[in-house]
């Protein structure tokens, strides 16, 4: 349980980090909070030539008001995200989902941006990013670019980041008038989700105006439940309408099976949990 040898760089600014990454070449790995990378290094599942530790890049930490959005620095820890008054006010879904991540120790080390850049479809942050339509600010040798959440997640543990790019911050839209909920289903509190559902819903009186629903661990990337969203748009805010819409939650998903759940069960759970998540987000009472 000792990593193979690697070179180590600890830049103190984004520019330095980008330069270090370019110099290190393709086999480099970027270290954020280390909650995924360190175990992979220790098990020698990852054998990078260089580890670039962003722990010293202080301008990548913290939350800033950016008008219609909040800009969360990629190196902001989960714990700091949960505590931040702006996040609590404008992005309660982020707070709710982040509180379910692993355990307290992990939340004090793990970072918001690290979790997103890791692009684990079983992670909680990616589906939340999709449901909230977050915008990813990325920096590389060619400068800065912005990628919407819908284009960021490419495959298992693969994002739109090029090997020479770094995720600097993430803009989280403030969604006044929306209700949100994260429904996570796991076997023990610190485990990854078997299935998770991030729901953001805007109601207009007795009608659901718009819903954005994203699923955790239902395929190689977090995935929007488009069928449910379509069915909900303009639907009455009733348990019956919700139930029939939620039945479409597994459309277009490709869940896998593991020791805790088969793909069949995941597909079924997605429908149940979507119904519960939307009901909670939209304030629709459920039977039983």
């Amino acid at each position: 349980m000792i990593p193979a040898q690697f070179e180590y760089a600890r830049p103190s600014s984004v520019q330095e980090a980008v330069r270090a990454l370019a110099e290190a070449g393709e086999d480099a790995k970027v270290l954020a909070g280390g909650q995924s990378l360190i175990p992979m290094l220790r098990m020698r599942l990852a054998v990078p030539s260089t580890v670039i530790d962003l722990g010293g890049v202080s301008d990548m930490r913290g939350v800033r008001d950016d008008g219609d959005a909040l800009a969360i620095g990629a190196m902001t820890t989960y714990a700091d995200v949960i505590r931040d008054p702006m996040v609590r006010e404008h992005a309660p879904l982020v707070v709710q989902a982040t509180e379910t991540v692993a355990d307290r120790q992990v939340r004090h080390m793990g970072t918001f941006g690290g979790a997103l850049a890791h692009a684990d479809p079983a992670g909680d942050m990616p589906s939340v990013a999709l449901a909230l339509d977050m915008m990813f600010d990325i920096e590389g040798p060619g400068g800065r670019r912005a990628v919407p959440a819908g284009e960021f997640f490419v495959d298992y543990f693969t994002s739109a980041l090029s090997p020479d790019e770094i995720l600097v911050s993430v803009r989280v839209p403030k969604l006044p008038g929306w209700g949100t909920h994260y429904e996570k289903f796991n076997r023990v509190a610190q485990a990854w989700a078997i299935v998770g559902v991030a729901a953001a819903v805007r109601r207009s009186g007795d009608t659901i105006e718009k819903a954005r629903i994203a699923l955790t661990n239902m395929g190689p990337t977090p995935v929007r439940a488009r069928g449910v969203e379509e069915a909900l748009a303009g639907a009455p805010a009733t348990a019956e309408a919700l139930a029939s819409a939620a039945a479409r939650a597994d459309e277009g998903t490709a869940p896998t099976g593991d020791v805790s759940a088969s793909s069949e069960y995941r597909s079924y759970l997605a429908t149940v949990l979507t119904r519960r998540a939307v009901a909670a987000a939209a304030g629709i009472p459920q039977d039983g």
Binding site: D103, R187, V188, A189, Q190, D258, V259, S260
Partner: peptide, 16 residues
């Protein structure tokens, strides 16, 4: 062994 770490071999903690 499919349950070769605590990721898959689920030992409950206090919250469970």
């Amino acid at each position: 062994l499919l349950t070769g770490s605590f990721v898959d071999y689920l030992v409950p903690g206090a919250p469970d």
